[in-house]
């Protein structure tokens, strides 16, 4: 690993100040993707600004009489998975968090880190997009539909820090993933939700430009919330990725199967 400078600021202002002062700096959350990337030389920041000493970035809050949940960016997956608040209000989100990576990864990996990294096969982007969540940064609130910009790309400006994510509580929701047995990443993952604004279907692991919504499925579910309503809907393979794990055609098939299973489970 290349050498780098390191700081562990104890105030938010110091953290964002340190990041602003060095264009080659990166925030360090749990590090489950970043450190692996640095070991491989895929990432070589000049400075890491560790967010571990900022308790305001951690924890789970129930908002507006239970209409929404706000999860701190530094909350580890294991904490979201085990949270009574999350389990009672958005069980699909708790289940999704409990299926990320393995137990050791879930003890370190965080919501904010996963979203800032925006791996095209990560689980959390599907929940954030599927639930029409809002990403709260130190500068603004970003709607999920505006946050994800492609492979490993987000709307975050340099130095902008994710503070928390607010998830509106849906009427019902479920997440189904077909996981890569070695990496545990989603070969395809589908998050479906019946929200106040209507049904949403978000797909991770499959898109050639990262997580995406399937509007044709959402329209079908708006008419009839049932697995059967999705039977004849195909996602074009031309917009999906092919790699050694699965062809685009196979992923397209999985999107349909998993979407139906998720609707049946929700």
């Amino acid at each position: 690993m290349q050498p780098f400078a390191y700081s562990e600021p104890t105030t938010l202002a110091k953290a964002t100040g340190a990041a602003a002062a060095n264009a080659d700096s990166r925030y360090l959350a749990g590090g489950q993707s970043l450190i692996a990337a640095m070991k491989l030389g895929l990432s070589a920041p000049a400075e890491l600004v560790d967010l571990a000493r900022l308790p305001e970035l951690r924890g789970i809050k129930v908002e507006g009489n239970g209409a929404a949940l706000t999860v701190g960016a530094m909350t580890p997956h294991a904490e979201v998975a085990a949270s009574m608040e999350v389990g009672a209000r958005i069980a699909a989100l708790a289940a999704l968090a409990g299926g990320i990576g393995d137990r050791q990864v879930r003890n370190r990996g965080t919501l904010g880190g996963s979203l800032a990294n925006d791996d095209p096969a990560a689980d959390y982007p599907a929940a954030v997009l599927g639930l029409a969540a809002t990403v709260n940064t130190n500068k603004r609130q970003i709607a999920a539909d505006d946050f994800f910009k492609g492979l490993f790309e987000t709307a975050l400006a340099p130095g902008e820090l994710i503070m928390s994510v607010t998830f509106p509580v849906p009427k019902k929701a479920a997440y189904r993933k077909f996981r890569n047995p070695a990496s545990r990443f989603a070969l395809v993952g589908v998050f479906v939700a019946q929200t106040a604004q209507g049904p949403r279907v978000a797909v991770t692991g499959a898109g050639s430009r990262g997580v995406f919504r399937v509007k044709s499925m959402e329209q079908a579910l708006a008419r009839d919330w049932s697995a059967k309503a999705l039977e004849s809907i195909l996602v074009p393979a031309s917009e999906l990725q092919s790699d050694l794990h699965a062809s685009a055609e196979y992923r397209a098939h999985l999107v349909g199967v998993l979407a139906q299973r998720a609707v049946a489970e929700a």
């Binding site: 390191y6 450190i35 070991k39 560790d50 050791q104 990864v105 003890n107 370190r108």
Partner: peptide, 25 residues
């Protein structure tokens, strides 16, 4: 590469992969 778990240690009682975290963490 943080997959096999041979490097697992307990950090504050929780299993974590010591090959995929900085000592300073």
């Amino acid at each position: 590469t943080a997959q096999c778990g041979a490097c697992t240690v307990l950090v504050d009682g929780k299993p974590m992969k010591s090959c995929n975290m900085l000592a300073i963490q």
